[in-house]
Design a protein around this nucleic acid. Structure first.
Length: 881
RNA sequence: GCCGGAGUGGCGGAAUUGGUAGACGCGGCGGAUUCAAAAUCCGCUUCUUUCACGAGAGUGGGGGUUCGAGUCCCUUCUCCGGUACCA
C-alpha cells in the first residue's frame, strides 16, 4: 500500500494532547467538598466557585465487556456522541461527569480459561488494558480517576452488599415498596420459630426457589428468561431445557407495576419503552373458579375475557399443573402420563417449533362452569403454559384462535357468545355484543366484562385480577468467573454473610469447567466451601448483570471503601442526565438496573426513583457491504487501522457524520477520507502549507527530528489581527447558531456539515482575522479536540492551557440579518422566479413586485389571479385560475 | 400475526412549526498544477427533453386535504428491529 501524504500531522499532535489532558487531569469532575486546585482549568473557568454549586451534567456510556477481539467500531459511535456532548456542556459552563469502566465478569473469559488453563483474571486484565489503550487513543474526555471494574474486589464487594440489601428486604404490598425484612409481620397461625423463618425466607426479595429453570447443558449453567431467545441461549445460541433446580431468584415481579408506571416519567424512545412494556406484559382480567364435578376440587383460571364465560365449552390445564394427577380418571391415566412425559422432554425450542400443531389429552374429568352449571371436559395441552396466569384456562373456542384450533382438532363443542359488529362472529376476538349469555345478553363487551366480574365476586367464584408476563429474575449461575454470593448454609438453611466480611472472594481453581449435573465449579474448592464453623458457602455465582446493575452509582465516588458511593456525591450527581448505548439491553440490563435502583431508593440509599432520566439508542454500524459486521463475512472494520491511517479526530468525526446517531448505517472508507480531507482543509486554513511540506519531507527522512520541528511550523500568512468584516462575522455566527442548535438536538451530522460550510467559505478569505478563527476552534473542539487544541495553541495563549473550559461561543442574531434577500415567487405552488427585496418590504409591495416578476409573467398571462399568499421571510405564491 | 421504526439522486444523507427538495460528504465528469502520477485547488453533477434559453417530471405506489405536501389524512407495498400459543 502506498504511503499517502498526511493531510496534517495527527500522528504527532494526537498523542501529545492526550498526554497533556492526562497529566493535567483536565477532565476530572469534583465531588462536593473536594474542589479543584486553583490552577486546574475548571477553577480558571469558575474561579472560587464550589463545584457542587454548578449545574451538573452526568453523561453516561454503556460500559463495554472487554472482549479479546478488542474495540469494535460500534463502541466509539456512542462514546463519541457522549464525548462531544460532554465537551460541549463543559464549555457551556456545566459541571460534567463523564466516566468509563469495564463490565468484566463473563463467560468468554471463563471459556477461554477452560480451554487454555489461563486464569480468567489474567485474560481480563489483558483485555481491559487493550480496551483502555484503544479508548484512550480516541481522545475521549473521561474522568479516569473514576474508572470502575466489576471484577475488582473493591467493586464487587458492593455488588455483594447490594445483594444483601435485597436479601434482607421484602416487598410490602401495603406500602408498595421494599422494606427491611424486620418489618414483616407473621400470620397468627405461625407460632414456631421454624415456621416464621420459612415464612420470612419466602418473602425476601432474594429467595431460593426450586421451580423449573432454563438450563443450558452446553454452557453448563442456568439462564434468566431474558437471556433465552427462541428457546436458545442468547450467548452462543445453545439449546435450553426446563429443569427444576434449586436457584436464587430476585423478586422483580413485585415491582412490575412501578416499573411500568415510571416509564411515563423518563425520557426514553417510544420504541424502547414499548419493549419494556411488552416484556412486563400487564393484562387486566379476572380469575374464575371452576369446580371439578366429582371431587369438588377448585381450579382457578385467568382470563381477559370473562364476558365469554357462557361460551367456555372445555378447560385446559398445562401438563405441569398440580391437579392433573388427582383429576385423571383410570382409563385416561396411561395417555395422560405419556403426554406429560413427552411434554417434559421437549425443550422450549421444540415447544415453540411445534407451536402450530395443537396437541393434548382428555383427563377424563369434568368441571362445572359456574355461570350455567354445565359440565365441561378438562384437558391437558402444552399450549397452556404453567408459567403464566394460573396455568389453567377456560377454553372459549368461538372467540379465541388457539382454542378454536384445538376444538376443531379434537371435535369439541363451539358456542358463539359474542356477536361481531359486522361480519362473522365465529372466531371473532374483538369487542362486540354478548349473545347466548343469559344475563349478559345485549351488553357491549366492556360492560359485559364488568357485570360478569361483579357477579363472580358476589358468588365468590372469581375476582378481578391483573397478570404480568414478567417472571421473577433467576439470579444464580453455575460459573466460576462471577461474584460469589455472600451466603452460607447451615443445616440446610441459608444465612447472610456479615457485611464486615465482604467481599467474599472466589477461591483459586485449576479447573473452571462446570459439571454436567449443574454443580457449580466453586463446589470443587473444598477448603473454600467448608468453613471452620461448620457452615458451607453458597457455590453459585451472580450473573454478569449484577455488576452492570449499579456501576453508574460507583462512578459517583469510585474510590469510596465505606459505602457504594458517598451520600453527598449521590445527591449531587444523580440521576444520569443522558445515557447512550445499544438497543440490545432493552429488556435486560435496562430493566434489571431500574429494578435494583428502585429497591435502593425504597431503602433510602439513593435519592431518585429512576436511574436514567434520558436514554438514547445508537444505531448499529453495518459493514461496507451493508451487511451486519461479522468475522465470517470478513467485513469487520478494525478501529486500530482506521486510527493509524486517518487519526482519532477523523475517526470521531466520521462516525458522527455518517448519519443520525440512532439510525443503522453502513461504514464507508471513502466517507472517512472525506472528513479526513475536511480536517486537512482546517489545518491549511490556519497553517502555511509550504512550511508543512518541508516539515513532512524532513520528518519522513528523520522521524526522530519531527517532534522538534512541529513547534516551528508557520501560521498561514493570511492570519492577522484585523477587525472581521461583516461577511466574515456572518459566516461565523451562522455557524455558531447551527452547531449550537444541532448539538442541543444531538444532530451531529448536520452540525459537522455546518463546520464544513464555514471552512469552505473561510478558505477563500485573503484576510483571516484571529478573532474569527479562534471562535471557530471553540466550535470544532468537541468534535475534533486534538486538532482544535493544537491550532488554538498555535494561534495564541489559551487560558487554562486547554479549550476544554473555554466559554462556548454565542451567536448574535443581528449579525445574521441580510440587507437584501432573494425572495422566491411561486405560481400555483411552483417556483417560477425570484425578486430581490429587503427583508422588511411590506406585504403589498411584495405582491406588486411578484406580479411584475418577469419570470412569473408568462405563467400569469391570460389567467385570473385568485389570491396572493405572502409568507414572511419564506416566499410569495400567486394562485391563478 | 401483533408492536415499533424507516422508504428522498449512482451512494451516505439534508430539508427544525405544511413554504425555494437534494445542504454537507462520497462517487463521477471536466479543468488548473505536474515530465507523469498522487495530493491539492477550481467548475459541473436528480431524471427526461433541448445546440441553447427553457420546459416537463420527481421524495416506494394509489387517492385526498391545501394557494402550496417529503412533511398532514386514507389506502397499499417493501425493508429493518422487537415479540410471539401470555389465555
Amino acid at each position: 500500500m502506498p504511503q499517502l501524504r498526511r493531510q496534517y500531522p495527527f500522528h504527532l499532535i494526537e498523542p501529545q494532547w492526550q498526554a497533556h489532558w492526562d497529566s493535567q487531569e483536565t477532565f476530572r469532575a469534583f465531588n462536593p467538598g473536594q474542589p479543584p486546585a486553583d490552577e486546574h482549568p475548571f477553577a480558571v473557568r469558575h474561579p472560587g466557585a464550589a463545584p457542587e454549586s454548578l449545574d451538573k451534567y452526568y453523561i453516561l456510556d454503556m460500559f463495554p465487556y472487554p472482549s479479546g477481539a478488542g474495540l469494535h467500531v460500534g463502541h466509539p459511535e456512542g462514546y463519541t456522541a457522549t464525548d462531544i456532548l460532554a465537551r460541549f456542556e463543559r464549555m457551556r459552563g456545566r459541571h460534567v461527569l463523564h466516566p468509563m469502566g469495564w463490565d468484566a465478569f463473563g463467560l468468554p473469559a471463563e471459556q477461554y480459561a477452560i480451554k487454555t488453563g489461563q486464569h480468567p483474571r489474567q485474560t481480563t486484565e489483558e483485555n481491559v488494558s487493550n480496551f483502555k489503550r484503544q479508548i484512550k487513543s480516541l481522545g475521549f474526555s473521561y474522568d479516569w480517576s473514576r474508572e470502575a471494574n466489576t471484577t475488582e474486589p473493591g467493586y464487587f464487594r458492593w455488588s455483594q452488599w447490594i445483594f444483601l440489601q435485597l436479601y434482607n428486604s421484602w416487598f410490602n404490598p401495603a406500602t408498595n415498596r421494599a422494606e427491611s425484612i424486620e418489618t414483616l409481620e407473621y400470620p397468627a397461625e405461625l407460632t414456631s420459630e421454624d415456621e416464621k423463618r420459612a415464612y420470612r425466607d419466602d418473602h425476601r426479595l432474594a429467595f431460593v426457589s426450586s421451580a423449573p429453570v432454563n438450563w443450558c447443558p452446553e454452557l453448563g449453567t442456568v439462564l434468566a428468561n431474558e437471556e433465552v431467545i427462541d428457546g436458545k441461549s442468547e450467548v452462543g445460541g445453545h439449546p435450553v431445557v426446563r429443569k427444576p433446580m434449586r436457584q436464587w431468584m430476585l423478586r422483580i415481579t413485585a415491582f412490575a407495576q412501578r416499573l411500568l408506571d415510571d416509564l411515563e416519567t423518563i425520557d426514553w424512545s417510544d420504541s424502547l419503552k414499548e419493549m419494556q412494556r411488552n416484556w412486563i406484559g400487564r393484562s387486566e382480567g379476572s380469575e374464575v373458579v371452576f369446580r371439578v364435578q366429582e371431587s369438588g376440587e377448585e381450579i382457578t383460571v385467568f382470563t381477559t375475557r370473562p364476558d365469554t364465560l357462557f361460551g367456555a365449552t372445555y378447560m385446559v390445564l398445562s401438563p405441569e399443573h398440580e391437579l392433573v394427577d388427582q383429576l385423571t380418571t383410570g382409563e385416561q391415566r396411561g395417555a395422560v402420563e405419556e403426554y406429560r412425559e413427552a411434554a417434559a422432554r421437549k425443550s422450549d425450542l421444540e415447544r415453540t417449533e411445534l407451536a402450530k400443531d395443537k396437541t393434548g389429552v382428555f383427563t377424563g374429568a369434568y368441571a362445572i362452569n359456574p355461570v350455567n352449571e354445565e359440565p365441561v371436559p378438562i384437558w391437558i395441552a402444552d399450549y397452556v403454559l404453567s408459567s403464566y396466569g394460573t396455568g389453567a384456562i377456560m377454553a372459549v373456542p368461538a372467540h379465541d384462535e388457539r382454542d378454536l384450533e384445538f376444538a376443531q382438532k379434537f371435535e369439541l363443542p363451539v358456542r358463539v357468545v359474542v356477536e361481531a359488529p359486522d361480519g362473522e362472529s365465529l372466531g371473532f376476538t374483538g369487542n362486540g355484543t354478548s349473545v347466548e349469555s343469559g344475563f349478559l345478553n345485549g351488553l357491549p363487551t366492556p360492560e359485559a366484562k364488568a357485570k360478569i366480574i361483579d357477579w363472580l365476586e358476589e358468588q365468590g367464584t372469581g375476582k378481578r385480577t391483573i397478570n404480568f408476563k414478567l417472571r421473577d429474575w433467576l439470579f444464580s449461575r453455575q460459573r466460576y468467573w462471577g461474584e460469589p454470593f455472600p451466603i452460607v448454609w447451615r443445616d440446610g438453611r441459608h444465612e447472610a454473610v456479615s457485611e464486615i466480611d465482604l467481599p467474599v472472594l472466589p477461591p483459586e481453581l485449576d479447573d473452571y469447567k462446570p459439571t454436567k449435573d449443574g454443580e457449580p465449579p466453586l463446589a470443587r474448592a473444598a477448603d473454600w466451601v467448608n468453613l471452620p464453623d461448620g457452615t458451607t458457602r453458597e457455590t453459585n455465582t451472580m450473573p454478569q448483570w449484577a455488576g452492570s446493575c449499579w456501576y453508574y452509582l460507583r462512578y459517583l465516588d469510585a474510590q469510596n471503601d465505606e459505602r457504594f458511593a458517598g451520600e453527598a456525591a449521590e445527591k449531587y450527581w444523580m440521576n444520569v442526565d443522558l445515557y447512550v448505548g445499544g438497543t440490545e439491553h432493552a429488556v435486560l440490563h435496562l430493566l434489571y438496573a431500574r429494578f435494583w435502583h428502585k429497591v435502593l431508593f425504597d431503602l433510602g440509599y439513593v435519592s431518585t426513583p429512576e436511574p436514567f432520566q434520558r436514554l438514547v439508542n445508537q444505531g448499529i454500524i453495518l459493514g461496507e457491504d451493508g451487511q451486519k459486521m461479522s468475522k465470517s463475512r470478513g467485513n469487520v472494520i478494525n478501529p486500530d487501522i482506521v486510527l493509524d491511517e486517518y487519526g482519532a479526530d477523523a475517526f470521531r468525526l466520521y462516525e458522527m457524520f455518517m448519519g443520525p446517531l440512532e439510525m443503522m448505517k453502513p461504514w464507508s472508507t471513502q466517507g472517512v477520507e472525506g472528513v479526513y480531507r475536511f480536517l486537512g482543509r482546517v489545518w491549511r486554513l490556519f497553517m502555511d502549507d509550504a512550511s508543512y511540506k518541508d516539515f513532512e519531507q524532513a520528518s519522513t527522512a528523520d522521524p526522530a527530528a519531527a517532534a522538534a520541528g512541529l513547534a516551528d511550523l508557520k501560521l498561514h500568512a493570511a492570519i492577522n489581527d484585523d477587525a472581521p468584516t461583516d461577511e466574515q462575522l456572518k459566516a461565523l455566527h451562522a455557524c455558531i447558531k447551527k452547531v449550537t442548535d444541532d448539538l442541543e438536538g444531538m444532530r451531529f451530522n448536520t452540525a459537522i456539515s455546518a463546520l464544513m460550510v464555514f471552512v469552505n467559505e473561510a478558505s477563500k478569505w485573503d484576510s483571516r482575522p484571529r478573532a474569527v478563527l479562534t471562535e471557530f476552534l471553540n466550535l470544532l473542539n468537541p468534535f475534533a479536540p486534538h486538532l482544535a487544541e493544537d491550532l488554538a495553541a498555535r494561534l495564541g495563549e489559551v487560558s487554562g492551557g486547554t479549550l476544554a473550559y473555554q466559554p462556548w461561543p454565542q451567536h448574535d442574531e443581528a449579525l445574521l440579518v441580510e440587507d437584501t434577500i432573494e425572495f422566491p415567487v411561486q405560481v400555483n405552488g411552483k417556483l417560477r422566479g425570484h425578486i430581490i427585496i429587503s427583508p422588511d418590504t411590506p406585504r403589498e409591495e411584495i405582491e406588486k413586485l411578484a406580479l411584475a416578476c418577469e419570470k412569473a409573467q408568462q405563467f400569469l398571462a391570460e389567467k385570473e389571479v385568485k389570491k396572493i399568499i405572502v409568507v414572511p421571510n419564506k416566499l410569495v405564491n400567486i394562485a391563478v385560475k
